[in-house]
Structure formats: C-alpha cells, structure tokens
Simulated assay, not measured.
Amino acid sequence: MEFAGKSVLVTGGSSGIGRAVGSMLAERGADVTIAGLDQAEVDAAVADLTLVARGTVAGFAVDVRSEPEVRALVDRAARPGGGLDVVVASAGVQRYGAAADTTTEEWDEVLDVNLRGCFLTARFAVPHLRARGGGSVVVVSSVQAFVSQRAVAAYVASKAGLLGFVRSLAVDEAANGIRVNAVCPGSVDTTMLRDAARLFAGDAASAAELIGRWGAAHPLGRVARAEEVAEVVAFLAGDRASFVTGAAIPVDGGLLASAGVVLPE
C-alpha cells in the first residue's frame, strides 16, 4: 500500500508500459486515472486494473496532442479534494524513416504525441502538484535518447527532447517539491515492439524470431517485460526516491553499457 491515498495520472495507460504502471500503482493503493487514444482499449484496461486495484480506477480516451483534451483529463484526475500526486507520461508512437524519407506529417505526428503530449500533461498537472505541496513526474523516454537505430529520425529526436524537458522541469520545480525523472527502456515486450517486428519480418513466426534477435542484443539476453520497467517507474514515483530528480534511468538489460563491436571467442 505504498501509494495509498495518492492520486495518479498515467497517459498512455491503456497499453504497454503505461498499462503495467497503472496496474502496479493501483495494486499498491493509488487512485489511478489512465488515458489512451482508443476508448475500447481504455475500457479493457480499466476493467483489468479494477481487478487488482485497492483504490479507485478511471479511464478516458484522450488525444495528448490536444490542449483542451489534456486540460480536461488532468482536471478529472485531480478530483476536487483529491489533488494530484504522481504523473506518469507514457503516451508515445513510433514511425520509421531516415530524415530524407520522413514526411513532414510523420515528423509532426511523432513530435506532437511524444514531446508535445508530455509538455501539455506537465503544463496542466504541475499546478495541481504544487497545490499538494509537491509530487512526482515520471516520463517514459528510451535508450534511443542516447543511441540510434537506423531509420528512426523522428522517434530519436522526440525521445532525446524528452530528456531535455525532464531536466528543465526538474530544475524549475525543485523548490516546489516536485521531482521529475525519466526511465529509458531498451526493447520491451509490448504491442509497439510486436507491431515493429511484424512490419519488418512479414509474418508471426518470423516476427517472434526477430524479437528474439533483438533480445539477444541486450547483455541480459532478452527483451524486458513491461512490469520490469513499471517497477522502476514506481520507485521513482514514490517516496523511496525522495532525493532523485532530473535523472534518466536506463532499464535496458545492459544495452547502453555494451559496445557494438564484439571480440571473437
């Protein structure tokens, strides 16, 4: 019951890492509000979270690119008398293409969802966190804020931008008792990863093999489970991380620690 009495908002909370975070914090006592783009997916996530929740659970279909929709979402999450204690910004999309192959529309979509969406969430949430005397913001970035695959120009730009935003927000809000941190996952077994594998592999069997190869590139030899990332998010969100702010924590199975050039056996 680490989060008992805490009010938590998770964007991107209907799938992947965000859903795992919402479930974990709900099980640990938080009143959780999740947001996702698809109403049916949000409803399914709320039903699952309710099974384990020790507090209340609510969910809304929201486009994080929309200022009015994000403002309304934050106001719903910060219920009268309940305030807002924790914000997890997990909404994100991936589109593939080198700079010369990325359309302006694709660039704008990725930057608007991944970066603008985080900014809008923070913009409207921070006053509620200040009113509570402080709180925690955790942003889901990526190892690709530091290194890049081929053909992910927009995604890498957005994830690197998130780390700059995290540092700025952490410095600006420290005096208000608000801590701001990021997690930077490697490959995680989510719908986004499986969609990418199918895109490049062509069929389900080859996609599973490709995910296995991606996992083997991590020194721990596999891709992560969403719950493993959620554990680090929960640590940063809670009081155990009371002196941690402005940090970017890799949750990557050693990927960033490993050189790409391997010596022969």
Score class of each variant (00 low, 15 high):
Ala216Asp: 14
Val139Leu: 10
Arg79Trp: 09
Arg19Ser: 08
Val110Glu: 01
Trp214Thr: 13
Glu109Cys: 12
Val42Thr: 03
Ala45His: 05
Gln149Leu: 15
Phe165Cys: 10
Ala72Asp: 15
Ala175Thr: 14
Ala259Ile: 14
Gly16Lys: 04
Ala30Val: 06
Ala35Trp: 06
Leu51Gln: 15
Leu25Lys: 05
Gln94Leu: 13
Arg240Met: 09
Thr190Ser: 08
Arg179Pro: 09
Leu9Ser: 04
Phe119Arg: 03
Val143Thr: 09
Glu228Ile: 11
Val21Thr: 11
Leu84Ser: 02
Gly13Met: 00
Arg225Thr: 12
Gly5Val: 11
Ala99His: 12
Tyr155Leu: 06
Val46Ala: 04
Asp172Ser: 14
Arg28His: 11
Val86Phe: 04
Arg123Pro: 07
Val262Thr: 14
Val147Phe: 02
Lys6Tyr: 04
Lys159Phe: 07
Ala201Lys: 04
Pro68Leu: 13
Val110Leu: 00
Asp172Ile: 11
Val93Ala: 08
Leu163Tyr: 08
Gly12Val: 10
Val10Gly: 03
Arg65Ala: 12
Ala182Leu: 08
Ala217Lys: 12
Leu236Gly: 05
Gly246Ala: 06
Gly12Leu: 10
Gly177Cys: 08
Leu37His: 13
Gly29Tyr: 05
Ala257Pro: 09
Gly5Arg: 06
Val166Met: 07
Leu129His: 04
Phe3Val: 03
Trp107Tyr: 05
Gly13Trp: 00
Pro250Gln: 01
Ala44Cys: 07
Glu27Ala: 15
Ala61Tyr: 07
Pro68His: 06
Arg213Glu: 14
Asp239Asn: 12
Ser90Asp: 03
Arg19Glu: 13
Ala99Phe: 15
Cys118Thr: 15
Phe3Lys: 01
Ala208Cys: 08
Val70Phe: 02
Ala234Trp: 06
Leu169Gly: 07
Ala44Gly: 11
Ala45Val: 08
Asp239Arg: 14
Leu51Asp: 11
Val126Phe: 12
Ala153Lys: 01
Phe60Thr: 03
Ala89Ile: 13
Leu199His: 14
Thr33Cys: 08
Pro264Asp: 15
Arg240Phe: 02
Ala241Trp: 11
Ala145Lys: 02
Asp203Val: 10
Phe60His: 15
Val93Ile: 14
Leu115Arg: 00
Pro68Arg: 08
Leu263Lys: 14
Ala197Glu: 10
Ala58Met: 07
Phe124Ala: 10
Val32Thr: 00
Gly55Arg: 04
Gly18Gln: 01
Met1Arg: 12
Gly97His: 01
Arg130Lys: 14
Ala91Gln: 02
Val10Asn: 01
Pro219Asp: 04
Phe3Pro: 05
Ala224Leu: 13
Val232Phe: 03
Gly238Ile: 08
Gly212Ile: 11
Phe165Ala: 14
Leu25Ser: 00
Arg19Gln: 12
Trp107Glu: 02
Val244Glu: 01
Pro264Tyr: 03
Gln39Pro: 13
Asp252Asn: 03
Ala197Lys: 02
Gly55Asn: 05
Ala237Thr: 02
Ala182Arg: 07
Val32Asn: 00
Asn114Gly: 01
Val8Thr: 06
Leu49Glu: 00
Thr190Trp: 07
Val171Tyr: 05
Arg65Gly: 13
Ala131Gln: 12
Gly254Tyr: 08
Leu9Lys: 00
Gly253Lys: 13
Leu163Gly: 11
Leu236Arg: 05
Ala259Tyr: 13
Arg150Asn: 09
Ser242Glu: 07
Gly13Gln: 00
Ala217Ile: 11
Val32Arg: 01
Glu231Val: 13
Cys118Phe: 14
Arg71Phe: 11
Ala230Met: 05
Ala226Thr: 10
Leu120Phe: 03
Ala44His: 05
